[in-house]
Amino acid sequence: MGSVARSPLDQRERSQGASGGITISGVNHEYRPPRGRPVLALDGISLEVADREFIAMLGPSGCGKSTLLYLVGGFMPLQQGRIVVNGKQVTGPGPDRGIVFQNFALFPWKTVRDNVLYGLEKQRLPKSEREEIAQHYIDMVHLAGFEDSYPSQLSGGMKQRVAIARTLAIKPDTLLMDEPFGALDAQTRSLMQEELVSIWTQSPTTVVFVTHDVREAVLLADRVAVMTARPGRLKEIVDTKMDDLPQSEVMKTRKYLDMVDYTWNLVREEAIAADSEKDR
């Protein structure tokens, strides 16, 4: 039984090794609201994310980061260009790409436990195994004791952690995270960052991580993609692979501090550009 269940998994991992990662080529996206004028959110984005690479996206608010994530997730139809994830062209959403939404998108009528269980139920795992996995991830995001709470009874940061647990629980091949730590206080954020890094070191997956926090981006990511003000283009990709040190050590190195400084300046330029755009 065990070996039968394993073989498709092994195959999956092998095929990933050959053509894994994400290829985004020539992607444009224009929002056309029924009223008002169309908004060009993305303009000619091309980006290669290597298999099991951790890439962070930075850019001013409204530059199209969420839009790009939605397109990789397959939630919106692609208007122009091509997106290939793990060798498969994206045509719709699927559990191979897990996403943590900026606004959490928890099911408000389900308890914390049932939210985390939802994806596992769709995988037809035995009940006891499902519950074990769910509890593991609930513990991991430090929400033990809140299993039976509804989202409306939780703080913003707690909701965000439920959303992270719900997505991690289905073990997606690719992780799309839209400001997953945005609502957390500094201490919890740092704990969650360490947690994410340790998950990622144990079983590396391709991660696209949107954030507004330059230090976080440099600390976590192999590369940081900085986007321009709307319409979103790629401004520069910064190599930020840090030495293999504990996080607290990395943050003291010269290399890290220089990298943060450099990236910070790139982001600042665009934030200023976005600001002057508004005044016009």
Partner: peptide
Amino acid sequence: ERELVWSARSLGASERQILWEVIFRA
């Protein structure tokens, strides 16, 4: 909310499940 439907879809729910487990409940 569209993100609610999207999360269900990306967690592996079928269209039918989305209708009854998400849209109807919401």
